[in-house]
């Protein structure tokens, strides 16, 4: 029986990896995949906590988060494809048109 702490720690690692990916990767797709990693870290944490509390609601939440992730994938890919087809690049730095 693996303790809740271990799961949470693993999810923390996943989340950190995702965050690092977001911060360091320059390709829109890779940033996007890192975000998905972060979402899955959240899912893992939710499941672990749900088990710790003996509560099904946490697992339901995972379902919803999965749906949200899917919706995000759909829209994100649409945007990326739209840009890709115009510019043939998904590098975030190349989007020089708009500088913060």
């Amino acid at each position: 029986m693996v303790g809740t702490g271990a799961y949470v720690a693993l999810s923390g690692v996943l989340f950190a990896l995702g965050l690092i990916g977001v911060l360091t990767r320059r390709t829109a797709i890779m940033v996007f995949l890192s975000v998905e990693l972060m979402l899955n870290a959240a899912n893992l944490a939710l499941v672990a906590f749900a088990r710790a509390w003996g509560d099904l609601v946490g697992q339901t939440a995972v379902f919803i988060v999965m749906t949200l992730a899917a919706a995000e994938v759909a829209i994100g890919l649409a945007i990326i494809v739209a840009i890709f087809r115009k510019r043939e690049t998904t590098n975030v730095d190349d989007l020089a048109q708009l500088k913060g």
Binding site: F63, A70, A74, A78, V81, R85
Partner: peptide
């Protein structure tokens, strides 16, 4: 820089959406 028809993306996205819907239906 290989390009393929955008239709495949659309199908992929639609699949994701409807597949999630199926996943909701199973429970």
């Amino acid at each position: 820089g290989q390009r393929f028809p955008v239709h495949f993306y659309l199908v992929a996205m639609l699949f994701i959406v409807f597949d999630i819907e199926t996943a909701f239906f199973y429970p």
